[in-house]
Simulated scan of single mutants.
Amino acid sequence: MLYKDVMTEQKRANPAPLGLSGFALTTLVLSTFNAGLITQGASVVLGLAAFYGGLAQLLAGILEWRAGNTFGYTAFFTYGAFWEWYFLTAGGFFGGVTPQAIGLVLIAFGIFTLAMWFGTFKANLGLFMTFLLLWITFFLLGVGAMIGNVGLSHAGGYVGILTAIAAWYTGLAIVVAESLGKSPPVGRPIMK
């Protein structure tokens, strides 16, 4: 047997927990600032956005592509790119970006996420809830930024915290279940 044949027969790791965890941790930290729970030191999110929210999700997306998972590839690669955009924008790499422009981008990601949410109807409840909460988060933050409504932005932060919890639970349930040799407790599909 050739070395190449041995490599193709080995079990590959599921990249979804990495992507979900990178998304969840970065979202949780940013959302605490968006909710107004912490008001100083928001630049701490930049490193997370560049590497764990961004790079780790881009890698998870590439691995999902390699596994033939179109939904996982599209989701992880898009949200990885979102975090890289956030890193560059918040870091001032694009110059003076207005709150209205930021709001427009967030609403556009909300539209994308709403469309992706429909793709979770036959997935598990964990993914369904993650995408449901995420599109609501994007719309609240986007409209809040566009019209300068701090209350909407804070609401978006709180929903973002719930989004992070749902994503983290979904990703870590897969890791724990796999290590115990069981099916992950992430709920049944919404539709059969």
Rank of each mutant, 00 (worst) to 15 (best):
L59I: 14
I111D: 11
L48F: 12
T113N: 11
A35F: 03
Y79D: 06
T32D: 07
F71R: 05
L140D: 13
G142F: 00
L59W: 01
G91K: 10
L20S: 05
P17L: 05
L141D: 01
T32E: 06
T78P: 03
F112N: 12
V97F: 14
Q57P: 05
L59E: 01
F93G: 15
G110D: 01
L134Y: 00
A49D: 13
L106M: 06
I107T: 09
L106F: 07
F109R: 02
A145Q: 05
T89S: 15
L132M: 15
L140T: 01
V143F: 13
L55S: 09
G80A: 13
G80K: 02
Q100P: 04
L152E: 01
P99G: 09
F23N: 04
G53H: 05
A24L: 06
G95R: 09
L25P: 05
K122E: 12
F33A: 08
L134P: 02
L25Y: 09
F94H: 11
G110N: 04
P17T: 10
A101V: 00
F93M: 15
Q40W: 01
A145L: 02
V45S: 10
F51Q: 06
A90D: 14
T137L: 07
E84V: 15
V44Y: 13
R12E: 14
A24K: 03
V105E: 03
R12S: 12
T74S: 06
L106I: 00
Y52N: 02
V105T: 10
F33T: 02
G96S: 15
F87N: 04
L58K: 00
W85L: 14
F131S: 04
N124S: 13
I38R: 04
R66I: 13
G151V: 12
L25K: 03
P15C: 04
G22L: 02
G110A: 12
I102R: 00
E64C: 06
F94N: 08
L141H: 00
A108P: 10
S153K: 07
